[in-house]
Nucleic acid binder design. Structure first.
Lengths: 339, 339
DNA sequence: TTGTATGCGTTATCAA
DNA sequence: TTGATAACGCATACAA
C-alpha cells in the first residue's frame, strides 16, 4: 500500500479504468461523442472521481497554448469602483473556468513593469480600463484580444468595448438639479487625462445647451481623492457669485466637496447641493448621503469578461453601453430661494 | 524574412546564440557558475534580449512542478482593507517574480469554484485571512504551505502567521478616551465569527481592568456595513445612561455610529465620541474625520507574502506581529462636562 | 566548458 | 471504438 501518493495523472486514471490515456482525455474533455462507448466513458469518469483526478493545468496549457486566464488592467484596486469591476469580471470568468489576474498598478513606488513580462501566467486576453493610461502603450500591438472599458467609442481599433452611459448620467443629473431650481452650477472635474472624464465635461455642456440661462463654473481636482476634491470645491464655493450646486465627477470628489462646504459654514443641501458619480459605499457612509449616478461596476466587469470570451470564441468585437441611474439622496435639494 | 513569427522559444535563442538549448536554460536561470564561460553567457543573454525571449511559464511549471503563484483568500476585495492587503502581497510577489491569484469570493454572484480543484498544480502556497471563514475548511489538509492573516496565535498548526497588534490598538484607544474623561464606553462590536473581532473584545476588557470605574456596554452589528453599524449604534445611544464614547470594531461601523448619533440629534464629538479600526479612506472622507486605529494593511499583505516565500525556501513557519497606531482625529473629544 | 537526451502531463493525430 | 505515439517548451542528469 503506497503511502505518499503523488497527484494522480490521466495515466493513473487510464490504468484504473483499464483504458488508454487518450481515451481518458477524450472522455474528460467531453469530446467522445461517437468515439468512445458510453460504457467506457462511464467507467473512465468513475475512475477519475474515485482517484480524485484533476488535470494538470500546466500540461494542459503547454499542450493547448491556452491558459484560460485574462489580465485585468486597472489603476488601483483600492478604489472601490475597480474592485467591483474585478468582482464582476472574476465572477463571469469563474463560470467559464477562467481566471483573472490583475495588473499591479505602477503608480505605487517603483518603476512600472511591463505587464506582459512579469504576468505570472501566460494570457489569453486583456481587459483594460481607459484610466490605466500608462499601461496602454504596452497593450498595443501585442496581439492579445483586448476589451476596453470606458474608452472613446470613436476609437477605431480592433478592441471590443464596454462603456457605461456617462452622458446619460450627466443628463439625468442636470435635469434633476435644474428641476430643483438651480441656475448656477459648479463642475468639480477630475483632472485625470482619461476619456471617462472628458465625456463627463462634454455631456455636461451638451445637457446645458437647452438652458442658456444656466451659468456653469469649473474647477479641476488633480486627482481622485477627497482631499483634492475639497480644495477644488473650495475654489468653486468661494467664487462670486457662488454656485448653488456642485456636480462632481466622482463620489470621492463629492465627499470632498461636502467637507469644503461645511468648513465654509455652508449647509448641504440647504445652501449648496452636491452630486457625484459611481455610487460607492462611501456615498451612503457620509452624512447627508450623496445623490450620485450609480455606475454598474460589477455588470461592466462581467460584460467585459463576456466580451472577451466572445472574441476568444471568434466573434467580432462589439461595443456595449450599459445604462446608468441617478440615485437621489440627501445631498441635493431645492436651490436657495426656490419655491 | 518571416512575417508572423510566433513567440521565440529557448531553442530559438540557442540557435541565435550558436549554443545548445541546455546552455540557454542554464544561463537564463542564472545557474551557470563554472559551467558556462562568461563570453557565451553574455552572447546568450544578448540573443535573448534581441529576440524578446520570455520563458513559457506553462512549460517551466510543468517541468519544475512549481508555479510561482500564491493564492490569497479574502472575503471581498470591495472592502478596502482587503484590497490593500492584496496590494501589499502582490507588490512583494512581483519583486520575486511571483503572482497572486485571488480566491473568488463565494458570496458574489455565480457559483464559486473550488480553488483547490487544481490547486496542487496551480499553486505553490496560500495566504488566508481568518475572516474568510468559509474557505478555511477546504484549506486544511491540502498540503499546501499556508500563511494565516489575523488568526489566533495560540492555534498550534503548522501555518506561519502574520498578525496586527489589535490588542495594543485597543489599549491605545481606551487610553485616549479615558484621558479625555470618558467613563462610560460603548463597544460597537462586529458580530462576525472571526478571531480578529474576538481579540478586540478581549483586549477591550483587558484594557479596562485597571479602571474599574469605567462602565462598558456592548452592541453587535451583524455585518461590517455602515447600515448595520448605524442600527447597532442606535441601540447603544438610546440606552440609559447613554455612553459618551463608542469604540467601533471597524471604520464602516464607526461611520454608521456617526450617522446614528446625528439622527438622534447628538453632535460628534461634543455629545458622543466615536473611534474606529482600520483607517480606511472612509475615515477622512466623513465629517468629522474618524479617530481610528491605523492597521498596516499593505505591510501585512507584504509580510504575509514574505512569510510564504520563507516557508517555500524551507524556513520554519514563524509568527509576526505588526505594530499599529491610533490616529487622533475629529470624531473624539473630551467627555461632556469634562474640564 | 558545452552538448545530448529525457521526461514533466496533456492533447491530438494517426493507425489498428 | 480504441490505443500507440508524437509533440508542447523547458530543466537537468549525464556524456563528451
Amino acid at each position: 500500500m503506497p503511502t505518499a501518493r503523488s497527484r494522480p495523472t490521466s495515466r493513473d486514471v487510464a490504468r484504473a479504468a483499464g483504458v488508454s490515456q487518450a481515451t481518458v482525455s477524450l472522455v474528460l474533455r467531453d469530446k467522445w461523442r461517437g468515439r468512445v462507448s458510453a460504457a467506457t466513458a462511464d467507467s473512465v469518469r468513475a475512475a477519475a472521481r474515485q482517484l480524485g483526478y484533476r488535470p494538470n493545468l500546466a500540461a494542459q496549457s503547454l499542450r493547448t497554448g491556452l491558459t484560460r486566464t485574462a489580465l485585468l488592467v486597472v489603476p488601483a484596486l483600492t478604489n472601490e469602483f475597480f474592485a467591483r469591476l474585478h468582482t464582476g469580471a472574476a465572477g463571469v470568468a469563474a463560470e467559464h473556468d477562467f481566471g483573472v489576474v490583475l495588473y499591479p498598478s505602477p503608480q505605487g513606488i517603483g518603476r512600472a513593469r511591463d505587464p506582459f513580462a512579469s504576468a505570472r501566467t501566460a494570457l489569453d486576453g486583456v481587459i483594460a480600463s481607459s484610466m490605466a493610461a500608462e499601461a496602454l502603450g504596452a497593450l498595443s500591438g501585442n496581439g492579445l484580444p483586448l476589451v476596453m472599458l470606458d474608452s472613446d467609442p470613436a476609437r477605431t481599433d480592433s478592441a471590443a468595448k464596454v462603456n457605461v452611459d456617462l452622458a446619460d448620467g450627466m443628463r439625468q443629473t442636470v435635469a434633476h438639479l435644474i428641476g430643483l431650481g438651480h441656475r448656477h452650477l459648479g463642475h468639480l472635474a477630475a483632472g485625470v487625462p482619461s476619456w471617462t472624464f472628458e465625456v463627463r465635461s462634454e455631456a455636461l455642456h451638451e445637457a446645458l445647451r437647452p438652458s442658456p440661462g444656466v451659468r456653469l463654473q469649473r474647477a479641476e481636482s488633480p486627482s481622485l481623492s477627497v482631499q483634492d476634491g475639497l480644495q477644488a470645491a473650495w475654489r468653486l464655493l468661494t467664487a462670486e457669485p457662488r454656485p448653488t450646486a456642485l456636480i462632481c465627477d466622482d463620489d470621492l470628489l463629492a465627499a470632498g466637496a461636502c467637507k469644503a462646504a461645511r468648513r465654509l459654514g455652508l449647509r448641504v443641501p440647504d445652501d449648496v447641493s452636491v452630486s457625484g458619480f459611481d455610487d460607492l459605499g462611501l456615498a451612503t457612509a457620509v452624512d447627508p448621503e450623496l445623490t450620485t449616478v450609480r455606475l454598474p461596476a460589477e455588470e461592466a466587469g462581467a460584460a467585459a469578461m463576456r466580451a472577451l470570451l466572445a472574441v476568444l470564441a471568434g466573434e467580432a468585437p462589439a461595443t456595449a453601453v450599459l445604462p446608468v441611474e441617478l440615485v437621489r439622496r440627501g445631498s441635493t435639494g431645492p436651490a436657495p430661494g426656490w419655491i
